[in-house]
Structure formats: structure tokens, C-alpha cells
Amino acid sequence: MPIMLAPVGQKVKIVAMSLDAEVKKRLTDIGVAVGADVEVISNSGGNLVLDVLGVRVALNRDVAMKIRVA
């Protein structure tokens, strides 16, 4: 499912990111990589704050729609 729909406060694993190479690279460098365990800290209308390796990362809705988690 897209990470947008992931329940808040539960660990999920990123399985795919269907984004431009450049955006994907940025996300990967900041820690939001395929295979990473992340947790949605807050979700306001699709704009997310994630916990990745203890860091808080904010994403906007368009990006959050294209990250799939399991």
C-alpha cells in the first residue's frame, strides 16, 4: 500500500518507490530507502512526518503516494 495509508505509529518496511531517479536518490540519502523500516509519526492529509533511523523526515503528499510499504 502507499505509505500515505499506513497506520500512524506502526513500523512498516518500504518495498518500492516509483519516483524520478533524482527524487529517489534524495530520499535514499536521507534514509527513506527501499528496504528501510520506517514509522509514520503524523499524517495530515497525506503530508507525512516519518521516523527513519531516529530522524524525523517530512514528505509532501505527492511523494507519499508513490512510496509503497508492506
Binding site: A58, L59, V63
Partner: peptide, 9 residues
């Protein structure tokens, strides 16, 4: 551009 940003404590 997409919004991807670390939020510092």
C-alpha cells in the same frame, strides 16, 4: 519540486 526535509529536534 517535491518536499523532502529533515525536521530537526
Amino acid at each position: 519540486a517535491p518536499f523532502i526535509m529533515e525536521l530537526p529536534a
